[in-house]
């Protein structure tokens, strides 16, 4: 799926990642226009991905899944990384760029389920995939902000207070981390429900029960559910929230990138 628009999108994400990782190296003009670059990149990304999925008669496969995740994280960055919060972009834009890079070189495989369901409604795939990607984007923000929280906490605890790039305040990070996790949880839940409905309608039940990705996702859903619950009930915030979101997101990325090549099921990508 290495098309010219995709390469341009990757270029945009890549430049912004570079600016984030090595501040002060790129010309100021580029640093100031990082937002614009990602905005244009994400727009092209949306048309390319959505167009291919909906009108290009391309069934969703491994590259599309990665590309969709990359798009979701890019949009998440646009939502979160305004002025003072831009420093957490360090954790988001590179993720987006790397995922898209993988998507471009990944072998073209179709999801097994699509073969099993020749009459899949054209909207089912984008809706299920879109909700999952929104969930992933929420968890990505929660993860990035969680890491930033731990960095700020470490600085304060070790009293390293000067000469470092300014990050948002501890409580601000904690609040955003929680909201992003809640956002991710809501969309993950919706994604699971639509996936279930789609499976119930198109597959003859039964077979999805044995799918490892379904189980893995259920564990992740539980994990985030527990994280939200202990926070709301017992007040386990801050460091706990950060650790929950870092572990949870690592699991999600693992599920997205590697799980399907390790086990087989109907989410797995066919030959």
């Amino acid at each position: 799926m290495t098309t010219i628009p995709y390469i341009l999108v990757l270029l945009a994400y890549g430049i912004v990642s570079f600016v984030h990782l090595l501040p002060g190296v790129a010309p100021r003009a580029v640093e100031e226009r990082a937002r614009l670059l990602v905005m244009v990149g994400a727009t092209v990304h949306l048309f390319e991905l959505g167009g291919l999925l909906m009108f290009g008669a391309v069934a969703p496969g491994y590259p599309e899944a990665l590309s969709a995740a990359s798009f979701g994280i890019a949009v998440a960055w646009l939502v979160v990384a305004r002025d003072r919060l831009s420093s957490i972009g360090v954790f988001l834009t590179p993720l987006s760029a790397v995922m898209l890079g993988f998507a471009l070189i990944a072998p073209r495989h179709q999801v097994a389920a699509m073969d099993a369901d020749p009459v899949a409604p054209s909207l089912a795939a984008p809706i299920h995939l879109g909700l999952m990607v929104a969930g992933l984007a929420g968890f990505a923000v929660s993860f990035a902000v969680g890491v930033a929280y731990l960095v700020v906490r470490d600085r304060l605890k070790r009293r390293k207070l000067s000469g470092l790039p300014r990050l948002p305040a501890l409580e601000t990070l904690d609040r955003i981390q929680f909201r992003a996790m809640l956002f991710g949880f809501v969309f993950l839940t919706l994604g699971i429900v639509t996936g279930g409905a789609w499976a119930a309608w198109s597959l003859d039940g039964g077979s999805w029960v044995a799918d490892p990705k379904v189980w893995f996702t259920a564990v992740i859903w539980l994990w985030y559910g527990v994280a939200l619950q202990v926070r709301l009930v017992a007040g386990w915030r801050g460091r706990w929230g950060a650790l929950f979101s870092i572990v949870g997101f690592t699991g999600m990325v693992f599920s997205l990138v590697a799980l399907d090549s390790l086990v087989s099921g109907f989410h797995a990508y066919g030959p």
Binding site: V152, L156, L161, P168, A169, L170, E171, T172
Partner: peptide, 9 residues
Amino acid sequence: DLARQIFGD
């Protein structure tokens, strides 16, 4: 300054 690093405002 320190309070702001912890609480924001």
